[in-house]
Design a protein around this nucleic acid. Sequence first.
DNA 1: ATGACACCTAGGAGGTGA
Length: 258
Amino acid sequence: MKIATYNVNGINARLPVLLRWLEATTPDVVCLQELKAPQEKFPAQAIADVGYHGIWHGQKSWNGVAILTRNLEIEEVRRALPGDEEDEQSRYLEAIVNNIHIGCLYLPNGNPAPGPKFDYKLRWFERLNAHAATLLALDKPVVLTGDFNVIPTELDAYKPERWVEDALFRPESRSAFQALVGQGWTDALRKLYPDQTIYTFWDYFRNAYERNAGLRIDHFLLSPQLDGRLIAAGVDHAVRGWEKTSDHAPVWIQLAEE
DNA sequence: ATGACACCTAGGAGGTGA
């Protein structure tokens, strides 16, 4: 089973690229982030026409997450991260597909740091880590994936020294991510490629993609029940070179059947 | 060190992203 994650940066602006990528790579499950569309503006029909259906939690202008599947049943578990009833931002969606719990997340960017946005990021991270611990306690196959907005290590950034003051790379963000993985999760791409440069995001500015000036900020975390089922993983980086493309590229994993 | 590019909502220009 192939699961993919893709920060589309506006699902309606990205629709031709998304459909082309879906038809070319046919993942079984797709997690999307940054829909930038209200619930009723999700292009469900166009997506159905290429064989996908699913659930989404939209929001006007910003954020928004979706989980799509192809020929599989999808059972929604929750459409918000627990721990703050006041949090209005659509950044988390969780479903069960093929007996796998899938958490699709869009962690806050947090810039400028320090400041209220960075505080929100760290609070959101605390809630994520608390919820992740409850997911591990299920003793079931769980995938946590999406745009974490965290550069885990120096290996994950082109010119890491440029990012030391940035919310994506500040010690608080890195240690929160480290604490999360330390609960017992497997960073799928790092497991398969421990020393390799892997990027999932390239700035629109200054020909960052052409220069391969990227970041690894979109991740797949696997519960111990899935660790042994990881067969392959990768980044569809060529999509980043298409016309009218997102600044992120899709990331995917392949899992063995039970 | 700065600003570059693209998205959104609007119906111009500003907020947000990473």
